[in-house]
Design a protein around this nucleic acid. Structure first.
Lengths: 332, 332
DNA sequence: TTGAAAGCGCTAACAT
DNA sequence: ATGTTAGCGCTTTCAA
């Protein structure tokens, strides 16, 4: 609690309001005065108290960033990008991990609300209604969820899933499965709706799940995959996909020999597994950056009502690697 | 900025100081009064402003958590554990990514200093002197670094490296290499010092590097490994180890057939690569928890001086998987 | 262009 | 056991 605005004022022989201005509206000061103040501040090592500033202005210049699971490799690049972007706008980022639990997630928003200007919910697990609810208390931006009136950035998983299913179809697979993720995930719903429609009459898609988005869940579902007799599966994310491959392997089922597997997210993991994972790339870092920008822009305006909430959709792309191949006996 | 302590006071027909007490020292209130206040607060949806509270008490109940690279899989489990621990102590966590840059790291401490009670530096890249320096401004706790007078939690990499080298020696390797990490890393120094001493006259250890702790760096160093003619290498971390395996593979050198490779950290990645990575497990989540506890305990005391700084050392363990084997032609 | 003064929401002596 | 009062460090009218 060392040096305050008063110390600088005394040192620079001006009133504290002048010191304040030297930082917040430097152009409204005579250059000599401004320089004298800034110099005094430098000498004393003065940094304005963000806390005190927040109390008067009502703006904390902090952002809350809530994710379902920090340890899920999907999130770190997003967090990193968000933090860098926030910092470049002179904002700091609170990180919070909701443990895939909607109740915790909502509680986190409330807990953070008092010391942030807004909250970014990444892959929220709470219901739309609750989100609308919370957004009346505090500005919210969403990643991978669309709610009317609330700014959001989504990844075009519909396109991704479509391309993935077609890839499988083109390979000659006719019996497919979608291993779904958490029930509350918007992304999951999008994909689930897409897969059947895309297959059309070229193939059938069995939906397995819901599952927690973990490797373990993937391993656990392997037996069921075998039982259904499908020859290709699309998984909710890389973690599940990798678990499936391991589980299948343990069952003596080879990938892609017996079953083809596609993941989603294109995390580092996919390049490392053997076979290397065919997956859908989603621009997580871009999403982090976009979310921060969206929130700040939403937050900056003065009239909170009636500004149309912006939606950003980011492109996805199929990355074909080694976990997909024509079905056994397809003669290719 | 909705409901304040005054609103609650009015609603509950008491003075605002009573409301304040209902939250901070409930036992000093008559039960009926306390209940009335709490009920009023509940009805109005009141939450104390942490900002205003911080301004008066001088304690923000926030912690800064600075890491070299959020996207390095070594950190997320640590961040997650730290966040959970902090939250259970009613603290919030600022996350910041120093991009492996000492200057940014120091700047981050300064930037956060005004709105946190203390900062946790994970795998700091800044010099000891600078850390001592900063710690005069703001309480600091360290992960993977030891500085006299500053609380820290370290992983026992000396033991880990020793066991790893012995494993290699026992396998029959005599020409070893240590592929080092960032020069500023304390862990790196510890390991570097240990490897040679452990090999003693049973083998030679060539040190390669320094390197940035990334897969790319590992790939880049593969050629040099081949050139030195060593048959086994210990890498600064899993990322580099995995890069080395890839790089070696690209050069037609097989692991562990021609060269054995050991990583450090035991991140998820190591179980996924083929061959699966032999590595040293370090308890990153425990470190996150311990660091928060250490900092809060350091922060809680009233006399800042002369309290002996606590040091916590966490155990490490060699995980033998498939990337290590006897050297070619060892007859086994 | 600068100073004076009020006040952000809360806590912490100090009264009573 | 509860009310009064004085700030915490800063920004922001309002004056000058």
């Amino acid at each position: 609690m060392a040096v305050t605005i008063k110390d600088v004022a005394r040192e620079a022989q001006v009133h504290m309001s002048t010191v304040s201005r030297a930082f917040s509206m430097p152009h409204r000061l005579r250059p000599e005065t401004r320089d004298r103040v800034l110099e005094a501040a430098r000498i004393l090592g003065y940094r304005p108290s963000r806390v005190a500033r927040a109390l008067t202005t009502g703006r904390t210049r902090n952002i809350g960033f809530i994710v379902a699971d920090i340890a899920n490799p999907f999130f770190p690049p997003m967090i990193k990008a968000a933090e860098h972007t926030a910092r470049s706008r002179d904002h700091h980022l609170f990180i919070a991990d909701a443990s895939e639990d909607p109740a915790i997630e909502a509680e986190l928003v409330d807990a953070l609300a008092k010391q942030v200007d807004g909250v970014i919910l990444c892959g929220p697990r709470i219901a739309n209604a609750k989100i609308e609810n919370l957004s009346e208390t505090i500005p919210i931006a969403l990643v991978n969820r669309k709610v009317t009136g609330i700014p959001s950035v989504t990844m075009d998983v519909v396109h991704g899933a479509r391309v993935a299913i077609r890839h499988l179809l083109d390979l000659g697979h006719e019996r497919l499965a979608y291993v779904s993720g958490p029930r509350q995930s918007w992304t999951n719903t999008q994909i689930r709706r897409t897969v059947g429609a895309t297959a059309g009459d070229r193939g059938t898609v069995t939906v397995l799940g819901p599952n927690t988005p973990t490797e373990d869940a993937g391993m656990a579902v392997a037996a069921e995959i075998v039982r259904t007799g499908v020859t290709a599966v699309l998984a909710y994310n890389d973690l599940i996909a990798i678990g499936i491959i391991e589980g299948l392997d343990a069952l003596g089922v080879s990938v892609p020999g017996d079953v083809s597997v596609i993941g989603i997210d294109d995390t580092v993991l996919g390049r490392l597994t053997r076979p290397r994972l065919t997956t859908i790339n989603v621009p997580t870092a871009d999403a982090g950056t976009a979310a921060v920008d969206l929130l700040l822009q939403y937050t900056a305006g003065d009239e909170d009502a009636s500004r149309p909430a912006a939606h950003v959709s980011l492109p996805t792309e199929l990355i074909i690697r080694d976990s997909t191949a024509p079905p056994r006996g397809s003669g290719s």
